[in-house]
Design a protein around this nucleic acid. Structure first.
Lengths: 199, 199
DNA sequence: AAGAAAGTAGCACAATCGTGCTAGGAAGGG
DNA sequence: CCCTTCCTAGCACGATTGTGCTACTTTCTT
C-alpha cells in the first residue's frame, strides 16, 4: 500500500476552501482554479478528489447542512429548560457568529443557485424539509408541555416559525448592520414567546 | 433627427429578457449573448443600451423593485377595510402568481449576488430599507387604529413581520410544492391577525 | 436630395472556463 | 532493493466569456 491520506478530511479541507472563495467572490468566483489556489493545491489534485465542479459545489453545500445539523443536535441534547433548549437549536441556523455567518452566506448563495441546478435543489429540499419538520416538532412539543397557547393551528405555526427563521437568516446575513446578531436572536425569542400563554 | 425609439421602453424590454434568461438558466446563464438572443436582437445593439453586463443586471433588478413598489402603491390606494388593504400591499411581495414568482426568483438570485457585488448591494439595501420601513408603518397604523394588541414592541414587531414576509417569499419560490401560494398568503394573514386583540 | 444622427449588427481579441489527459513523486509491502 | 498504488501536478484543448471596435441601415431634418 502506498501513501494514504485521510480522504474525508482532505475533502473537508477543500470544501472549506470553497466556502472561503464563495464568501469572497461569490459562487461565480468559485472556479476550479480559484478553489485549488485557495486550498493551496493544484488543479489536478483537486480533480482527484472531485471529478467535476458540480460535485465540488454539491459537497460544499452538503457540509454546510451537516454542520448545522450537528450543532443543532448538540444543542438539543444539552441541558436546561425545554423552551430555552429549543430556542438554542433554532438559533444554530442563524448567522450569530463568524462560522455561522459564513455558512449562511454559502447557504444563501447555493439556495439561489438551486433554482436552476437540480442536484442542489434536491439537497436543499431535503434539508429544508428537515428544518421545517423540526419547526413542527417545536410547536408540538411546546403544546404538549403546556407551554403554548391553546387553539394553535400547529401546521400553520410551524410554517410561520420556519418563515421567521429563514427570514431572519436572510436579513441578518445580507444586512448585518440593520439586523445585528443579538437583535435577530431577540426577535426569534420573542416569536417563540408569542406562542406561549400570555398572548 | 434620425429614427428614435422609446429608450425607456427598449431598456424595459431587454430587462424582461434578462428575467426570462435568469429564470431559465440562473444568473450565471445571463450572458450578454444569451440575453441578446432572448431579446431577439444583437450583441452590438444590446451594448448600445447597456454598456456593461453589470449595468444590465443592475437595471434588471431596479425594474423588479420598481414594479413591486408600483403594485404596492396601487394596492395601498385601493378601497376596502384598513387591515385588508395593508395585507394586500404586503402580499404584493409574495410570489402569488406567475409574474410575482418570476420577480421573486430574480430577487432571490440577485440578493445572493449582492453579497459580493457592491452595486447590487446598494440597491438591495435601499429596497430592503423601504420594505422594512413599511412593515414598521403597518404595525404602527394597526396600533393607532386600535386594531392591534396593546403593549406591542413596535420595532420588534416590524422586524418580525419583515422576517415572516421574506421567509415566506423564499420558501414559496424555492419549494412551491411545499408552500403553495394560497398557503403563504394564509400564513401571512394569520401573522397579521396575531397582532390583533384576541391573542 | 443630402447629410447627420440613432440604432443595429457582429467580428476580433484576450481572458477564463471545465475537464481530459499524461507524467512525476512519494511511501509502504514484497 | 523494487514495484505497486495513491496522490499531485499541470499542460492542452475547445468552448464561452465580456467588451472594444467598425461598418451598415434606417429615418428625420434641412
Amino acid at each position: 500500500m502506498p501513501r494514504t491520506v485521510d480522504a474525508a478530511e482532505r475533502r473537508r479541507q477543500i470544501a472549506e476552501a470553497v466556502w472561503r472563495v464563495i464568501r469572497r467572490d461569490g459562487v461565480p468566483g468559485a472556479s476550479v482554479r480559484a478553489v485549488a489556489r485557495e486550498a493551496g493545491t493544484s488543479m489536478g489534485s483537486l480533480r482527484h478528489w472531485f471529478a467535476t465542479q458540480d460535485e465540488l459545489l454539491h459537497f460544499a453545500m452538503t457540509l454546510v447542512v451537516e454542520r448545522a445539523r450537528a450543532r443543532g443536535e448538540a444543542a438539543a441534547s444539552a441541558g436546561g429548560p425545554l423552551v430555552a433548549r429549543l430556542l438554542r437549536v433554532l438559533e444554530e441556523t442563524l448567522p450569530l457568529d463568524d462560522e455561522r455567518q459564513a455558512e449562511t452566506e454559502v447557504w444563501l448563495a447555493l439556495t439561489a443557485r438551486a433554482l436552476v441546478d437540480p442536484r442542489l435543489a434536491e439537497l436543499r429540499d431535503r434539508s429544508a424539509a428537515e428544518l421545517h419538520a423540526f419547526c413542527g416538532d417545536v410547536v408540538r412539543v411546546l403544546t404538549e408541555a403546556g407551554e403554548a397557547r391553546s387553539g394553535l393551528d400547529l401546521d400553520l405555526e410551524a410554517e410561520r416559525l420556519y418563515a421567521v427563521l429563514d427570514g431572519l437568516a436572510v436579513h441578518a446575513v445580507s444586512r448585518p448592520t440593520a439586523l445585528p446578531a443579538d437583535r435577530a436572536r431577540q426577535v426569534l425569542a420573542a416569536h417563540l414567546d408569542s406562542l406561549r400563554d400570555t398572548g
